[in-house]
Nucleic acid binder design. Structure first.
Lengths: 304, 304
DNA sequence: AAACTGTTTTTTCACGATAAAAGACATTAA
DNA sequence: TTAATGTCTTTTATCGTGAAAAAACAGTTT
């Protein structure tokens, strides 16, 4: 299956699914260009979607007249796994291998083997590795193989060192933003979400991960520095897999973190640089601790 | 020319040229594996080199007996331009376009067009752009084109902001290194080179660029942080092209910089953190100024 | 037995080709 | 005359392929 296939139509399938949800909500469909903007795809893809919706009897379609004929059913949707980007598929496979033990630092990475194992072309794997290399976990030997540097204690320390430097600076920049900046409204909204989550922490603690990312990205953006903003991708990636992998005391950890975020938000709103610095430091310290304790000892003994 | 070619043998040609120089110096050749390590290539390539040297009458070769028959002549060497990596070729072409005006921020980059213009495959261009994207000058639109963000004043400011943060920290770490660390010897050697250059600045001012990079990399390495060390690639790239492009008052600028470096080295050797901080700040400030003045006004008006 | 040379296998690098998706142009409806 | 639809062209994403280069294996020489 999937062999010899030049390119999967996951963009279409994903947009189709999202379009179904839209249909379910609004009971109508706008013009083709508008729908394209809404779904973030070209009109070419929009027309493929509409064509299929007509075929499956969801809508009647004649030029600009689009009539909804019936509600979308669960089986109208494409399976979730068919909507993933190749890059996502490769990343998942790669990270699974990397975290599922046996991935010792210094080990060499074989493009061809990876490609065969995942069932994709070598080009895609190469491109993935190049993109991934900026995370500092792998390194290329000139016209030869890639080397795994390992998810070690050293890595975590280096990562958090930069993170702390960047976030302290961003937080200070944030606090210095004028009162009429739209970020204060964003912050208020995030504060509400944090309070809500704090109340329902017992059942919704796993919603924290996503909130965490949005909160920190908002702060980093205040730096107005592309290198700082981009660096959050590294942190986000590591934390994304960290959250999936280290489930020990997740509820407690997240509860503490929500509290720290609220104090941090309070400090930002006070616009008192001393308070901001203290709150930021405190939160980052416990975030680092959490990350460090999740690194198995066997992995932390290796040389960088 | 070069059309339909699967892969150029630039590794072989470059190693061949270097091997000729070696032959010229040492008048003899070691064993195949040793030669491989020396040239940084595999034995397969070494054997191709030896085979050609035999063919062109440079050596007699029978198993481990390699006898030098004559001196290498200029026409034995492969032309310089045939020894470049594809990545280097693409980078040069791309940067020429980028710096040779007409490259307005917001402009879109077309992989196919670039590939055709340079005369290479699209894959190589794609891979180059992915690698290049970490420099913060271009950005990808999801399943669409790349966008040029432009070599603007904002870019220079963001770059130098991070550079200053990283280098101040690295310099402090450097000064705190134990007396028996090998870096102090490296620093002494660099100091000597700086003094030498200071004396001959009138004629050798263009040798500064390379010395500058080695000096700053030494300092950054003291951070023991891969993200800081890797970030120097961004700086090095920008300065590399900056030096090629902005020749105004090059001699004066470099003379000042050499002086600042010497003061900076002095401060490091004093191991007085206050002095280190001051000397580092001073140098970085003038480096930033140099970079900023080299950005044409027309480019600095654009929004980031 | 250690280090070399000879030979074979595997991997990386780069290309052209092709389907998916985007984008441009021409036409038509409001 | 603006904004949509219908059609055609270009570009991106991905693969298989083949040469260059690396790496592994086997046999020799010292």
């Amino acid at each position: 299956m999937g062999q010899g296939m030049s390119k999967s139509n996951n963009v279409y399938k994903d947009a189709y699914n999202r379009c179904l949800r839209l249909l379910d909500e609004t009971r109508s469909l706008p013009s083709e260009p508008e729908l394209g903007t809404l779904l973030g795809v070209s009109r070419t893809t929009v027309r493929s979607i509409l064509a299929r919706m007509e075929e499956t009897g969801l809508i009647a379609w004649n030029k600009r007249a689009k009539t909804v004929l019936r509600d979308p059913r669960p089986d109208d949707f494409f399976p979730e796994e068919e909507t993933d980007t190749l890059a996502e598929i490769i990343e998942r496979s790669f990270m699974r291998r990397l975290l599922a033990g046996g991935a010792e630092a210094g080990m060499q990475i074989n493009e061809l083997e990876l490609a065969r194992e995942i069932g994709v072309g070598t080009t895609s794997v190469r491109e993935f590795l190049i993109r991934f290399s900026r995370f500092g976990l792998i390194e290329k030997r000139r016209n030869s193989h890639w080397v795994l540097k390992g998810f070690t204690r050293a890595f975590a320390l280096e990562l958090t060192e930069i993170r702390e430097m960047f976030e302290l600076r961003s937080a200070a920049a944030f606090a210095a933003l004028p009162q009429d900046s739209p970020v204060w409204a964003d912050l208020d909204r995030l504060e509400d979400e944090h309070r809500l989550l704090a109340q329902e922490i017992a059942t919704r603690f796993n919603a924290f991960s996503e909130l965490d990312e949005r909160f920190h990205r908002l702060i980093h953006r205040a730096s107005h520095n592309r290198f700082i903003v981009d660096f959050y991708d590294v942190i986000a990636m590591i934390f994304h897999y960290h959250y999936q992998w280290n489930k020990a005391q997740e509820r407690e950890r997240n509860e503490v973190a929500v509290g720290e975020h609220l104090a941090y938000i309070e400090a930002l709103k006070s616009r008192d640089l001393g308070k901001v610095d203290a709150a930021c430091r405190k939160h980052l310290k416990s975030a680092r601790q959490t990350l460090l304790t999740s690194i198995p000892e066997s992995r932390s003994l290796q040389k960088s």
